[in-house]
Amino acid sequence: MHPLFSITKDDIKALNDEQARELVARLSMAELEAQGCSRAAVTWGGNQRAADDGVDVEVASTNPIKAGGYVLAPLTAFQVKAEKFPASKITGEMKPEPANTLRRVFDEIAAGAGAYVIVSTQDDVSKKFMAERTKAMADALVGSPHVGKVTLAFYDAQKMADWASAHPTVAIWLRSAVGKPLRSWKSYGAWAHGETDESAEFLFDKGVRIYRSGRDGDLSTLDAVNELRKDLPANLNIRIVGLSGVGKTRLVQALFDDRIGTTPFFDAPIEEMVFQPSVKCRQEIEIAKSFSTSIASRRTRAIPPGFGAGIVKCSAVGVHPAR
């Protein structure tokens, strides 16, 4: 993982109750999507302090889960605590007073060969004390018919930091949540001006034509989406130029919409860079603006030869409206 997206245990400890629970939910959804499973299998929400039968976030996937990940089974229940949670508290959590009987949720987890994970965002423990916590969890099952049928785990702040660092889009959200936003990045969403719903349908305008450097002729918007998707996994830097309002940002947003196009949707972190340009970059932006104004006044459409020269592996794309 690039250091830009690294999360520390101190970042995890800065979360409040609701943020900690949301983090586990977001990470669970990201984990499922990374394995080709539906994020809809994750259930969470409600009042953090409300009675929840010992479950804050539940994963109930109909698909197998790969071994070695952070979601331990297709049916995994997370209990999230934004507090220190030593072994002495675990029995009371799994077998609450006054009855001191095992929570009913363990009947369901055991029947589904599932997992139960306690998350403490304030704990940062050594291997020895981690073992004490997992032993306390196992001891709480003794005397029930569920011994050996439930996978048990305890995640501390470091474990959660490692998990968050594995998913850049979640890491970006987390940094914003703790007041340390990455000012040059923001997660996928309704980027285009005036839009608020990222699931809104992309409307095709046959009058809009797209031109690529090194390619003769124009492209329809759909053809451009398919071509650009082929380039992105190759780590190309793609520069898009055009007059204000012609749909440059909305085009980029459409690249990540799997409802559009025929090219297979690629698996990649979805981000947009919003930067404070350097002097050189500002000069290049002015060139792009000048070029767009020039082609508009001449009512011609093309990409100037050599545009983007000096930029490693750069492909230029021009977006222009119909005459």
Score class of each variant (00 low, 15 high):
residue 195 E to F: 13
residue 195 E to R: 15
residue 195 E to Y: 11
residue 195 E to D: 15
residue 195 E to G: 06
residue 195 E to V: 07
residue 196 T to G: 09
residue 196 T to V: 13
residue 196 T to I: 12
residue 196 T to R: 12
residue 196 T to D: 11
residue 196 T to K: 14
residue 197 D to T: 15
residue 197 D to P: 05
residue 198 E to P: 09
residue 198 E to Q: 12
residue 199 S to Y: 06
residue 199 S to F: 09
residue 199 S to W: 09
residue 200 A to F: 04
residue 200 A to V: 09
residue 200 A to T: 06
residue 201 E to V: 10
residue 201 E to Y: 10
residue 201 E to L: 12
residue 201 E to H: 12
residue 201 E to R: 11
residue 202 F to T: 05
residue 202 F to P: 00
residue 202 F to E: 07
residue 203 L to H: 13
residue 203 L to E: 14
residue 204 F to A: 11
residue 204 F to P: 02
residue 204 F to W: 15
residue 205 D to R: 10
residue 205 D to G: 11
residue 206 K to I: 15
residue 206 K to W: 12
residue 206 K to G: 15
residue 206 K to E: 15
residue 207 G to L: 14
residue 207 G to W: 10
residue 207 G to A: 14
residue 208 V to A: 07
residue 208 V to N: 08
residue 208 V to K: 06
residue 208 V to T: 12
residue 208 V to F: 10
residue 208 V to L: 12
residue 209 R to D: 11
residue 209 R to N: 10
residue 209 R to E: 15
residue 210 I to A: 02
residue 210 I to Q: 01
residue 210 I to H: 00
residue 210 I to V: 15
residue 211 Y to M: 06
residue 211 Y to D: 01
residue 212 R to A: 04
residue 212 R to P: 00
residue 212 R to T: 01
residue 212 R to Q: 03
residue 212 R to W: 02
residue 212 R to C: 01
residue 213 S to A: 13
residue 213 S to H: 01
residue 214 G to V: 04
residue 214 G to T: 03
residue 215 R to Y: 03
residue 215 R to D: 04
residue 215 R to S: 05
residue 216 D to G: 03
residue 216 D to A: 05
residue 216 D to T: 04
residue 217 G to A: 06
residue 217 G to V: 05
residue 218 D to Y: 02
residue 218 D to I: 00
residue 218 D to H: 05
residue 218 D to V: 02
residue 218 D to A: 08
residue 218 D to K: 01
residue 219 L to D: 08
residue 219 L to T: 02
residue 219 L to K: 05
residue 219 L to P: 00
residue 220 S to T: 13
residue 220 S to N: 06
residue 220 S to F: 06
residue 220 S to Y: 04
residue 221 T to I: 11
residue 221 T to Q: 15
residue 221 T to L: 14
residue 221 T to M: 13
residue 222 L to N: 06
residue 223 D to L: 08
residue 223 D to A: 15
residue 223 D to E: 13
residue 223 D to T: 08
residue 224 A to Q: 04
residue 224 A to R: 00
residue 224 A to N: 04
residue 225 V to R: 00
residue 225 V to H: 01
residue 225 V to T: 01
residue 225 V to F: 02
residue 226 N to A: 07
residue 226 N to D: 15
residue 227 E to K: 01
residue 227 E to F: 03
residue 227 E to S: 06
residue 227 E to L: 05
residue 228 L to K: 02
residue 228 L to W: 01
residue 228 L to E: 00
residue 229 R to Y: 03
residue 229 R to I: 05
residue 229 R to T: 03
residue 229 R to L: 03
residue 230 K to Q: 08
residue 231 D to R: 08
residue 231 D to Q: 07
residue 231 D to H: 08
residue 231 D to P: 00
residue 231 D to S: 09
residue 231 D to Y: 06
residue 232 L to N: 09
residue 232 L to H: 11
residue 232 L to M: 15
residue 233 P to I: 05
residue 233 P to V: 07
residue 233 P to H: 11
residue 233 P to S: 06
residue 234 A to V: 10
residue 234 A to I: 08
residue 235 N to D: 12
residue 235 N to V: 10
residue 235 N to W: 09
residue 235 N to A: 10
residue 236 L to H: 09
residue 236 L to E: 07
residue 236 L to D: 04
residue 236 L to S: 05
residue 237 N to Y: 08
residue 237 N to E: 07
residue 237 N to Q: 08
residue 237 N to T: 09
residue 238 I to D: 03
residue 238 I to M: 07
residue 238 I to C: 05
residue 238 I to Y: 07
residue 239 R to P: 02
residue 239 R to T: 12
residue 239 R to F: 14
residue 240 I to K: 06
residue 240 I to H: 03
residue 240 I to M: 09
